[in-house]
Amino acid sequence: MSLLIEHGGTLATLQDGGRHGVRHLGVTQGGAADWISHGLANALLGNPRQAAAIEITFGGLTLVAESDVCLALCGADLDATIDGEPLRPWRSFRLHKGQRLRFAQPRQGVRAYLAAPGGFEAPTMLGSCSSVLREGLGGLRGDGRPLAEGDRLNWPGVSPSPRELPAAQIPDFGSPAPLSVVLGAQIGDFTGQSLFDAFNSDWEVDARADRMGVRLLGPELRCTRRSMISEGVPLGALQVPADGQPIVLLNDRQTIGGYPRLGALTPLSVARLAQCLPGTRLRLTPVGLDIAQRQHRRWLGAT
């Protein structure tokens, strides 16, 4: 029971729910950037939501089945095909022995998630198999490297019957939903004009975007604070370096940082941002902490 990687493409990595309880060692969180799509792909196969799946960024990945299997695909539409026949995301599907699954390029979204029955097998390091190249942690061989030609992936589970996700559960990557920000950290040190601009302007997703962070282009935000002592930074932190262009920190961010922050995106908004292609225009909107926490709990409880 295995899948053979023929081409690794732009960036394909194994990701699970990430590493927790180790950031005090300087070890980053890791894990699926769009944790919602990742969880839905696993749910389609009856897997634990945080089981290891392949995060396919932009495309270029080609795999061949070495045995019959039922896989699940959620997240970005990367123009996937099975032996040339189009395959849409948000479903589980059969891949027969010898068939070739290919991801071309983004039609909508950035990251697709491919799950296998029981989750892909990989060594657990510090509680997770999430692949972080710069730390040399996780992945198929435990050295943090992305998937590459010749890699063989295995899974422990039994293939269920294919099914589609109900339309109501499918996230909408088309509409430019405003991203919710829990205000906090050094927000009091920004100028009034910058606070107005932050939440009343369009922001454009820059090409400088990866699993560490996503840079946003727009009005220059000014902070009156000259310097600060580095401190722990949470997922989604909205930090503003000296050039005034904010960076949203994602899963592979450094554990501590010294740039002033306006607060942090909610995890639901982080997942949405992780699917925004460079050039996407979006808005930031403040959200009350209580409301954000209730929304998050409701999401976790409902799915």
Binding site: G21, R23, Q29, I229, S230, E231, P234, R297, L300
Partner: peptide
């Protein structure tokens, strides 16, 4: 209930389980 604790020079970041 502690998800992560990140000490730095003068601060401690406490991340807790929302559930």
């Amino acid at each position: 209930a502690l998800t992560d604790l990140v000490p730095s020079y003068t601060t401690l970041l406490v991340q807790y389980d929302l559930l």
